[in-house]
C-alpha cells in the first residue's frame, strides 16, 4: 500500500509539469499584447508598454519564463503578480474557499440524492419508480444549466422568497444552498444513471445469489454485499466531479453572483491576465491530481484485488 501511494505521488510530478507547461504555452500564445490591451481603444504608450513588459518578464524566452515561474512557486509559493500589482496568491486565497464551499454543497447534494435515486431505480428496474427517475434525470441532463439556474432562482428566491437570489462576497453557507443544488443537479443525474447501471449489473452477480442463499436479510444483501461492489464506478465519477465543479462553475457562479474560481478565471481570460489564469489553473490541476489520487486509493480500499495487484 505504501509503495503504491509513493508510486502514485511520483507519477503526479510529470503530469503536473506537463499540464502547467501546456497552460503556459497556451496563455503565452493568446493573440494580442496584454499590456497594450489595458489601454482599450486608446493608443498605447510605447515606452510604458516596453518597461512594463520588461518588469513582468514578458520579453524573456518562453522556456525561461516558465522555468522562473515554476521556481517561484516551488521555492517561495509565489504565483507572481496580477497586472494590478496584487499577488495572484491573494486573489486565489479569496476565491478558492468560496468555490470549495459551493462545490461541497453540490457534491453533498450529488452523493445523497444521486446514490439514493440510482439505488432505488436499480432495485426497481423496469418498474414505475425506475421510469420516473429516468424521466427526471433525462430532463435535468437536457435542460441547459442557465435555464435551470434562472428558473430555480426566480421560483425559489423571488416567487417563494425562501432564500436570497444572489450570494455576494460573503458567501454564507445558507446562501450557497440554492446555487449548490443547481450546480450539482447535472452531477446528480449522471451519478444516478451510473449507480443504477452498476446496481443492476451486480444484482445479477453470483455472490448476491450466494448471500441470499445464506439466509441474509434482503437489507443486508443490498447494503453489505451489493453496494460495496457497486461503488467503484460511483467513486470514480464523484472524484472527478469535485475538480469539475470547482473550476467549471462559470455559468452558475455568474447567475447567482458567486465570486468564485470560475467567475474569476473567466474574467482573467478576457483581460489576458496571464499570471492569474496560470495560477488558478495550476491550483485546479493540483486539486484534480489530488482527487484522482484519493479515488485510486479508495479503489484499493473498496476492492482487495486492486490492493494486492
Amino acid at each position: 500500500m505504501g509503495r503504491y501511494v509513493a508510486r502514485r505521488l511520483l507519477q503526479m510530478i510529470p503530469v503536473f509539469l506537463g499540464t502547467t507547461f501546456l497552460i503556459y504555452v497556451m496563455v503565452y500564445s493568446l493573440p494580442g499584447d496584454p499590456i497594450s490591451a489595458l489601454y482599450g481603444d486608446k493608443a498605447a504608450d510605447k515606452v510604458f508598454v516596453a518597461s512594463k513588459r520588461k518588469e513582468l518578464g514578458l520579453d524573456d524566452p518562453l522556456v525561461v519564463q516558465y522555468f522562473n515561474y515554476l521556481k517561484n512557486i516551488v521555492l517561495h509559493w509565489d504565483f507572481g503578480k496580477a497586472f494590478n500589482g496584487q499577488p495572484v496568491w491573494n486573489e486565489m486565497k479569496r476565491v478558492f474557499p468560496i468555490s470549495l464551499k459551493l462545490a461541497t454543497v453540490a457534491i453533498g447534494f450529488e452523493i445523497v440524492v444521486g446514490v439514493a435515486l440510482g439505488v432505488l431505480s436499480g432495485l426497481r428496474r423496469g418498474k414505475f419508480a425506475d421510469r420516473i427517475v429516468l424521466v427526471i434525470t433525462l430532463l435535468i441532463i437536457s435542460i441547459p444549466i442557465f435555464v435551470l439556474g434562472r428558473v430555480i432562482q426566480w421560483t425559489v428566491a423571488i416567487k417563494w422568497d425562501l432564500t436570497k437570489p444572489t450570494v455576494g462576497g460573503e458567501a454564507h453557507w445558507a446562501d450557497l444552498m440554492m446555487p449548490g443544488f443547481v450546480l450539482g443537479a447535472l452531477a446528480v443525474a449522471f451519478l444516478a444513471r451510473v449507480t443504477r447501471t452498476s446496481i443492476v449489473e451486480n444484482l445479477r452477480a453470483d455472490y448476491i445469489r450466494t448471500a441470499t442463499a445464506k439466509g441474509l436479510p434482503r437489507r443486508r444483501v443490498i447494503t453489505v454485499h451489493l453496494l460495496r461492489n457497486s461503488m467503484i464506478p460511483m467513486v470514480t465519477l464523484i472524484g472527478t466531479d469535485l475538480g469539475t465543479l470547482m473550476g467549471g462553475a462559470i455559468v452558475t457562479e455568474g447567475i447567482f453572483n458567486v465570486p468564485g474560481v470560475g467567475y474569476t478565471l473567466f474574467q482573467a481570460i478576457r483581460l489576458k491576465e496571464g499570471p492569474t489564469v496560470i495560477g488558478i489553473v495550476t491550483v485546479l490541476v493540483l486539486i484534480f491530481l489530488a482527487c484522482s489520487l484519493i479515488v485510486d486509493l479508495l479503489y484499493a480500499v473498496l476492492d482487495p484485488r486492486i490492493r494486492y495487484a
Binding site: D206, Y207, R209, T210, A211, H225, N229, L302, P304
Partner: peptide, 9 residues
C-alpha cells in the same frame, strides 16, 4: 470465484 463476494475476506 464468482459465488464468493470478491471484496470481503
Amino acid at each position: 470465484l464468482s459465488a464468493l463476494n470478491p471484496v470481503y475476506s
